[in-house]
Nucleic acid binder design. Structure first.
Lengths: 154, 154
DNA sequence: ACTCTAAAATCAAGTTACTTTATTTTCAAG
DNA sequence: CTTGAAAATAAAGTAACTTGATTTTAGAGT
């Protein structure tokens, strides 16, 4: 009983440590490269979401549209992102990562990515299914509550 | 074969999504409460690490010591943190979360925390051990590479 | 005991980034 | 084909960050 409870606490704490560690890693990278925290977050979002509109980016980062424009100017100037015309809406733009950012960040992140891939490869299919299931459900809860806060339901 | 490969990719992507979702959740909370991004990060670090020195905080956030002092002034002024004398070093201080921040953030985070606890409770001991093991190893890799970057080894 | 170097935190001046408000262009509904 | 709203930008003012100097205390060497 106490064992099971401890195990549950362990997973909860491991999950929080995991999130914090990813932030600390990003901070280490950005300090090395000389990026501020929002610019770095923006590149992270683009890295996982792919192409985004400035509107999306201002939503994700919590910046105003004015700040987002200024940030995209900085990142475009550094050749870390690229503005493309949005074929579906001529008012807007589409933002994508520039190859130069991939090249700049690669030496700092490639080693970790390789080790994480090896770690994952060391688990059986059954285990991976459990892990993927857990992460997905956990993330879905987070997304749901994020939406609730944004909608003013909390 | 392709199945196993897909499963590995799925776990890698689920893990990244998990990290991003936690950032988006924090952004939603901080926008609701009116905190800027660094102040919010600082409170997150304090929440998981417990008591920290300003030196620790400037290291974790990547801020200079001057900015850290200003940030702690803001947070102390808002009664979200408390400065305590450091018994081991009279030059320094110890920073801890003020109860007011707990009260302020509780309504926004309590529901999610409850659901995550329920999610975790729905797994068997065997499954939880696999999940905890994975998260711990994954996090340790991240920590290791963070250290390597900070030490200039990358 | 007594220097002396260095570390922790703070402060002040200058720089960078963010918000607010207004403007331009385009979309989409009537 | 007008009209109200949305996407992005721009400019002015505010807030946050960096740099460099200062204060206080630790810890090492004499």
């Amino acid at each position: 009983m106490t064992t099971k409870k401890d195990l549950q606490t362990l997973v909860m704490m491991a999950s929080r440590e995991n999130n914090i560690s990813s932030i600390l890693f990003r901070n280490a990278v950005r300090n090395k490269v000389g990026l501020n925290i929002t610019d770095s977050e923006c590149l992270s979002f683009l890295g996982i979401k792919g192409v985004l509109t400035p509107k999306d980016i201002s939503h994700y980062t919590g910046l105003t549209t004015g700040s987002t424009t200024a940030m995209l100017d900085r990142l475009e100037n550094a050749e870390f992102i690229r503005r493309k015309p949005n074929p579906d809406d001529r008012r807007g733009a589409l933002i994508e990562i520039h190859e130069k950012w991939v090249e700049t960040s690669r030496p700092l992140v490639a080693g970790l990515q390789k080790e994480q891939a090896e770690l994952i490869a060391s688990y059986s299919d059954t285990e991976l299914e459990i892990i993927a299931d857990f992460l997905t459900r956990f993330t879905n809860n987070v997304k749901k509550h994020t939406q609730m806060i944004e909608d003013g339901l909390i």
